[in-house]
Design a protein around this nucleic acid. Structure first.
Lengths: 243, 243
DNA sequence: CGGTATCTTGAAGCTAGTCAATCTGCGTGG
DNA sequence: CCACGCAGATTGACTAGCTTCAAGATACCG
């Protein structure tokens, strides 16, 4: 259609740039040995000196902070190709844990900054990455500030679905994290996440298949319900397909 | 006091670094003419090409995004010395408006990046600034995710108070933004902000004096109530150190 | 000294949280 | 290979905290 939504464009651009940034920065990690991390194990801890950066080679990682007694906020999930710790200066501001069995590589912060300073391609890639993260953080702030449970869930699922994963066959979306992880990422409780999924299923929008897969029946509707679509009745769904 | 809270430390470090980063990057703006912006007027719009960066020379600026019908999120306030638009690549992801009468300076993005590339002091300052913003964004995500109205308000007031402004005489804190701005920044309604302030006043923690000043009677209590302090009446602070 | 925008206060409603019980997918071991 | 056990997920009943809607009060302006 003729209408194209700005944010759809933004996202497409961002994804491409992130890809490039990630790729060129990836070169810094190839020389280091891959480490295996079992599901649930920590990669680094909040408060520690951020002496290393990590790259996820395989698997899914969650970054979280704990405040007070038992309040956990998952600020982000990271997938294959993503860097962890790029936006840090002194200490880790989060704990990173493997959601699934992971393979990661690491590089020292000192080394990283030297290489970035040396190369004239890496600098912009690094900046670009930091800007991506900033944009993602803002998106999340909007979600946490103004969206209701259903909008949050739909936003989350759409974002997950738009990251083209290998085994995401026709309409079947792998959801590696458990309900508690999702809840802590969306600022909800596990019960509300569960109830919201049930409601979406009853409306035949997404249907859970086992604990870690969602069949996406009506992506267009999902995008509408995410609250990001500037509600064009029918055609707002293009955006996810393009790029 | 004898107890020093980690995050308090973090903040102190951050503030210093931000100061340095801001100072060195400030040099880029001195040559451009200062522009006056009346209270309430926009400086740039969400969706526009981000062709310029701005520096606030005087006054307070709010950055916001609108989603759906009338849902506004203020992602940040910027004060004298702060840069606006550093974390952007293509388009503005927010609208910037003057909260008070402002003086700002601008520089083209192209120019900015050329200068940063040329100088070897500016690069790190720029990176540092982006990391500050990332840290602030994470802080805000925690606030929006897990804090209740009172904790949000207290966090906000503490942060505002920790930025040593010129006319902040003994315990009197200038609050340039109105209640609606505060509400939209904290993910609350104006009524809840008002009620929460009333409650804090009745407990003699902060007392409003006019619409734009708060007398801070009990800062220590305010910090406790902000939920950032790991409420160590005595010892719960270990948790961050060990692991 | 009014007029108005801003803020405060009150009452009612609703969304998501809490607590508790039940169910189910999934891995394990017989 | 199937039965079992259990962590993780769902569902239900109830509650709390924030929002909404609607009056009033107050600060600040001309």
């Amino acid at each position: 259609m003729l209408m194209q939504n700005n944010h759809a464009f933004d996202n497409a651009e961002k994804t491409l740039e992130a890809l490039h940034a990630g790729q060129s920065l990836s070169s810094l990690f190839v020389s280091s040995a891959a480490e295996s991390v079992a599901a649930g194990k920590a990669i680094c801890w909040e408060g520690d000196k951020a002496s290393h950066l990590f790259q996820v080679e395989e698997g899914v990682v969650r970054l979280h902070r704990i405040i007070g007694e038992g309040r956990r906020v998952i600020t982000a999930f990271h997938f294959a190709g993503d860097l962890i710790g790029a936006s840090l200066q002194n200490d880790f501001l989060f704990t990173a844990e493997a959601v699934t069995e992971c393979k990661i590589r690491r590089i020292s912060r000192k080394n990283f900054h030297e290489e970035v300073a040396r190369s004239n391609a890496l600098g912009p890639a690094y900046i670009s990455l930091l800007c991506q993260e900033a944009a993602a953080a803002h998106e999340q702030m909007v979600l946490l500030s103004k969206k209701n449970a259903e909008e949050r869930l739909c936003s989350f699922i759409v974002k997950l679905a738009s990251r083209r994963s290998p085994q995401s066959r026709q309409g079947l979306l792998r959801v590696p994290m458990n309900r508690q992880d999702i809840a802590d990422h969306l600022g909800l409780t596990i019960e509300t996440v569960s109830r919201t999924i049930t409601k979406l299923a009853s409306r035949n929008i997404v249907v859970p298949e086992g604990r870690h897969d969602l069949r996406i029946v009506n992506l267009a509707r999902l995008v509408q319900l995410s609250g990001d679509a500037d509600d064009f009745s029918e055609d707002s769904c293009h955006r996810v397909n393009l790029h």
